[in-house]
Design a protein around this nucleic acid. Structure first.
Lengths: 202, 202
DNA sequence: AACCACCTAACTAACAGTTGTTAGGCATTT
DNA sequence: AAATGCCTAACAACTGTTAGTTAGGTGGTT
């Protein structure tokens, strides 16, 4: 019955990422995944040991793809402020266009056990996080790189996380969800604080 | 067998908040809740129509308690910068000591349907969000209040959200999870940006 | 060319356990 | 007597997972 020999394993992972990101681990059954792929539930167990393993493969796939792109920006040769601006833009862009990645990360922050957190920290985010901290330290040698790096990430990612509720809050405009607008706002805030008296960004 | 007549309904809600916050809606069974309360699953259905209703009662309870405390700070008579500093501190404190509230909010952001988002926006957060926006506008009349308000919330809340992974990231110190430290960092950043050349905060 | 063994990738059918929920009963209080 | 607050027992639906089977492709031997 199985006509063409495609890369089923990859298809399973891709669709799992989508489903897990949308509904969360507990709300996606192996039958849901099998249906999406177009095979029977039992067939999933040929490719993966169990649901947990499939989930882990999914988040690893989703997360490891992002790190490399952002690492590039941080390694480019330019003044610190320019690099920061580029980083913010790229981060906003990535997190904005790949909703699955962002939601999986959000979910992991809530439900990931210690072991998985440690894995993510050390194998996926560590390098990039350090580089970002060092970049900030270049701009202000006296700051706390850890806190400042998190602050940068928070400004970008939280804007996107809160999108579902922000659209109902007064003062919402459609620009508020556009990459350029968010990135520019964040960069300006980081440079000048709330007071935008001095030099204009971009 | 049931000895004393307490306020079971409230106990159910309190424990549900805790459980739903910790594990999420799908990962908490009505049996789990019943066990925690010390009654049989069927007895829950005397107090609540179904699981959904119980969940809704839980988040309403958890969320509505917070709004009033923060609203107070915003109504006090003081220079804008002082009010902002107090607000940041109070928000950090609240979000830090009530982990259930924070986690429920995180979960709602991921899984709340449109109707619930609208409810939360209009009935719970709207007023406070506006007040915060106006406060920021007082400090800088040219800013976008919506964006700036979210930025303030993001700086505080994301620090706390990321705690599970931050502890494994290099450069982490235990101060990074203390209310004072976070609040001071956020306020300084908002006032001066990353450059802390000028006046010192606090 | 024809046969065989083997591997791959799917299938059917069923399992034991958990889920939310309901019907009906029993005891205590008003 | 009525209402309250809990109970026991059971329900159908759904869960992750397994055992056993089958169809098609591959490579080696006759």
């Amino acid at each position: 019955m199985h006509v063409i020999k495609e890369n089923t394993r990859q298809t399973i992972i891709d669709l799992s990422i989508k489903l897990f990101a949308r509904s969360g681990y507990a709300n996606v059954s192996v039958r849901d995944i099998a249906n999406a792929v177009g095979i029977k539930p039992a067939s999933l167990y040929y490719h993966f040991d169990n649901k947990q393993t499939l989930y882990l493969a999914s988040i690893k796939e989703s997360f490891s793809l992002k790190a490399s792109v952002l690492a590039e920006v941080l390694q480019m040769q330019a003044p610190a402020e320019i690099k920061l601006k580029h980083y913010i833009y790229k981060l906003t862009e990535l997190a904005s266009e790949d909703e699955s990645f962002r939601r999986l990360l959000q979910r992991e922050m809530l439900d990931g056990d210690e072991k998985r957190m440690q894995y993510l920290a050390e194998k996926v985010f560590q390098e990039q996080f350090n580089a970002l901290g060092m970049l900030v330290a270049e701009i202000d040698p006296d700051c706390d790189p850890h806190m400042s790096a998190i602050s940068i990430l928070s400004l970008v990612l939280y804007h996107l996380e809160t999108a579902p509720i922000r659209v109902f809050l007064k003062g919402h405009k459609k620009e508020h969800d556009q990459v350029d607008y968010i990135a520019r706002h964040v960069f300006k805030l980081l440079m000048n604080g709330l007071l935008q008296t001095s030099k204009d960004a971009l």
